[in-house]
Design a protein around this nucleic acid. Structure first.
Lengths: 215, 215
DNA sequence: ACAGCCATGTAAGTCGTTACATGATTGC
DNA sequence: GCAATCATGTAACGACTTACATGGCTGT
């Protein structure tokens, strides 16, 4: 249930609408968690029902309502409970790596394309996270300024350092992905030189192995 | 729909029962994808309905049936289609990193516990992946031997190298996590020395920020 | 007789995605 | 008047987890 806690943590800084929350998740490197707007609106309603957040609704035009959510005390204490609860590590589930294990079922050109896309993707992520980490370190984002303003001065270093440490960790992750893809491209070049396999062919297509032939 | 393709790829080596497939996912470092048995049994039935796999059912006792699945030609060509299809990168969604951003809401002791658990987890993963990568490189697993036996010799290097490259990539990932957690522990030590905050306290508890106080 | 592993499922529920749908406000 | 952006939702479906349930086989 991490979406819930990501939302609580954002609302701890200031009251926001579902739309604003969705933007944080969507548009930027700011966030380490992805979610789409229908899930966010739905989760906010549930959190309201559970008393973790409260809403101040305002009319918009004749029919629409603008709902601005803010933390309740129950929400604040749920946040501290969650932070102190042991976090079980995520299950391994990366489709790019799964596919890479079976690149033999495609052509060398395909492996190359896949590694190139991987490279591009993580280069972009690295840039974005780096920009955000730098901004945080300078204490130069809207949210961090609000956070520090409401915290005792002696806690400021810890608040910033925990966040910067996390984004720097994500940068290191991205760098590992970039390096992996680069080594992958070099490997494809080498394999293609060594093997006498025609351009565009599958390296070694899958074969069916029926009961009869195996037992 | 990666579970489906993970299953197809395993069945490409040899026919297996749902139970055997579940073991591969469950028990070992062999696999880069996690799944529980109910999902596997359900997915196998769907794949059968879609004609990607076929089954040879055998009686077990009076009521039970042992169902051994094998690839069909449609399954084999679905595998090659999937490998050549562009793979969109996974969304960022790591609860451990999300939580680390908000370690300020807990105590230093909590941050330390969390980093230690992270460290232990990825050390174990690294060991397991390393063992598997080494075995693969020596061409010394059941599945890789079966795979190579049914492939043209000139393709052997590529088949092994793609897999080894992937597991070595996972090892690098795990090492980055270990290093991140170690730096995290050092950071906690430093912060705790610097700040005059009492043992066991929250660093800076969340505060509620209602509409009134913010606008 | 019992333990431990082999083997297969159902049911209920949560989490997450995609497609569809509607209306308001701001600036040009 | 139009486009872009603000703003909020529903419906259907697919992916995944957890709990529950049953029975067979092998070795001690």
């Amino acid at each position: 249930m991490s979406l819930r806690h990501a939302l609580l943590a954002l609302l701890e800084n200031r009251p926001m609408t579902g739309y604003e929350l969705a933007k944080q998740f969507d548009e930027s490197a700011i966030y380490v968690w992805h979610a789409q707007h229908p899930q966010i609106y739905t989760e906010l309603r549930k959190m309201e029902a559970d008393g973790l957040i409260d809403v101040s609704a305002a009319r918009r035009g004749t029919k629409a309502t603008k709902r601005t959510y803010f933390l309740t005390e129950a929400g604040a204490s749920e946040l501290t409970r969650w932070v102190s609860e042991p976090q079980q590590p995520p299950r391994e589930r990366d489709p790019a790596y799964l596919k890479a294990i079976y690149f033999e079922f495609g052509s060398f050109a395909n492996a190359r394309r896949q590694f190139e896309a991987h490279l591009e993707h993580y280069r972009r992520l690295e840039r974005q996270w780096r920009a955000h980490a730098d901004q945080l370190e300078r204490r130069d984002t809207d949210l961090i300024r609000r956070r520090l303003a409401r915290a005792p001065e002696k806690a400021h270093d810890a608040i910033v350092d925990f966040k910067v440490h996390t984004y720097r960790g994500l940068i290191e992750r991205a760098k590992v992905e970039v390096a992996w893809a680069k080594r992958g491209l070099a490997m494809v070049d080498r394999l293609e030189r060594d093997a006498g396999i025609a351009e565009g062919d599958e390296v070694s297509p899958p074969q069916i192995d029926s009961i009869e032939s195996s037992e």
